[in-house]
Design a protein around this nucleic acid. Structure first.
Length: 375
DNA sequence: CAAACCGGGATCTGCCATTTAA
DNA sequence: TTAAATGGCAGATCCCGGTTTG
């Protein structure tokens, strides 16, 4: 038996009564990578009884399983008192084991703070079970409180605050400094484009894109610079874009935004369009940059094949939002009725299903009229 | 009346790397 | 030293309908 294994046995034997640091073993030997501290057996048992997936917990936060003081029972009772069932509790602990290190007092306080922004306990629980990490990752309740204060002082509505915490709950666990720096950054963007009301600009961007707070300023900056630079936007154009649908593409991964933009540029060029058309298209509907380049090309090809002119798509790019199958089907339906896209436009393509069917209905009855009494 | 404009809803967590605390 | 706390990242549309306009 090797010395390391022997040491492990000794450690294991002594664990319940003595801490590692107090053992008469040289620190170096104790910290050897071959002898990690043992897990807390009674804790493992408790967690098993709760139905926790130990393998998952171990993979995520191994250190928690070695702790001697934990509060899994308190956490379970707490969550159950808020309406969680056994399975939910187990899932939460399995996905974020550190949750069991929070005291009951801490949990009460944190829940109270979150609850201020929600409408019911059930809502809090819903977000918490969706994203345990957002709720438990930070143990700093004071920071949480300051965060809520800070977000409210921005002048965002109670409704936006609610949307913020339900859609991007991580925002609340960010440090106030991080959130503040994002707001400062947004304001600086506004100023750099000659905007006169930086606070309102920041509010608008946040309201239109609830995910900005869980992105880095570096990413947002890179995207702002890419769009304004590559498209040669004027200050007014940039301000307008980022305060409308453009806000939504600011948090996309920078590499993919760059890829999609370049691909669209190339594609439009191949269809005989220049920079002006590219710019106009994106100002008309910047969300086309969400569509992956491959898919976007397929959609454009599909529209071109359907006899639609590029210029029409440049003017009304929202049609690219729809699935290829949907576009193809609609083109087919309209062709069957002899619809003239050059004359009647392509707006009909980007209507809701219900409205499109109603439109088809009208077109076909009009056609029947014509057949009966041709003028 | 129909078309056009416009915004919103779902969902967006779970993992990794680095820094900080104990 | 280990574990906790924190910041950051990838992922890659589709559709609906209220309101305004013509």
């Amino acid at each position: 038996m090797s010395r390391v294994m022997l040491q492990r046995q000794i450690l294991h034997f002594l664990r319940p009564v003595t801490r590692c640091v107090s053992l008469p073993v040289p620190p170096r030997a104790c910290s050897s990578k071959h002898a990690p501290p043992p897990e807390n057996e009674s804790l493992l048992e408790n967690l098993s009884i709760l139905g926790v997936d130990l393998a998952s917990a171990r993979r995520r936060q191994p250190g928690v399983l070695r702790r001697h003081l934990t509060n899994e029972q308190g956490l379970a009772h707490f969550l159950q008192s808020k309406g969680a069932d056994q399975e939910t509790v187990a899932s939460i602990i399995s996905r974020f084991p550190r949750s069991i290190t929070r005291s009951c007092e801490h949990l009460e306080e944190r829940w109270r703070l979150w609850r201020n922004v929600f409408r019911s306990d059930a809502e809090v629980l819903g977000v918490l079970s969706r994203s345990p990490e957002s709720f438990f990752r930070s143990s700093d309740n004071k920071n949480l409180e300051e965060n809520i204060c800070f977000l409210m002082t921005l002048g965002i509505t109670a409704r936006d605050l609610h949307r913020l915490v339900t859609t991007a709950p991580r925002t609340f666990s960010n440090s106030v400094e991080l959130n503040r720096s994002m707001v400062e950054f947004l304001k600086s963007v506004c100023v750099s484009f000659g905007g006169k009301d930086p606070e309102r600009f920041a509010r608008t961007v946040i309201s239109r894109n609830l995910y900005v707070f869980i992105r880095s300023t570096g990413r947002i900056r890179a995207n702002v610079e890419l769009l304004s630079g590559s498209l040669r936007l004027s200050h007014a154009e940039a301000l307008a874009l980022f305060q409308s649908h453009g806000a939504q593409i600011l948090d996309v991964s920078h590499e993919s935004l760059k890829r999609n933009l370049e691909s669209l540029r190339t594609k439009l060029r191949s269809l005989g369009c220049g920079e002006d058309e590219l710019k106009r298209m994106i100002l008309n509907y910047s969300l086309v940059l969400f569509v992956s380049s491959e898919r976007l090309n397929q959609k454009l090809d599909c529209l071109m094949d359907g006899g639609i002119h590029v210029q029409q798509v440049v003017q009304k790019p929202k049609v690219l939002d729809f699935s290829i199958d949907c576009i193809r089907q609609r083109l087919h339906d309209l062709h069957g009725l002899g619809y003239d896209f050059q004359k009647s436009g392509i707006a009909v393509l980007d209507s809701s299903r219900k409205r499109f069917l109603a439109k088809l209905e009208r077109l076909s009855s009009a056609e029947n009229e014509d057949a009966r009494s041709p003028s």
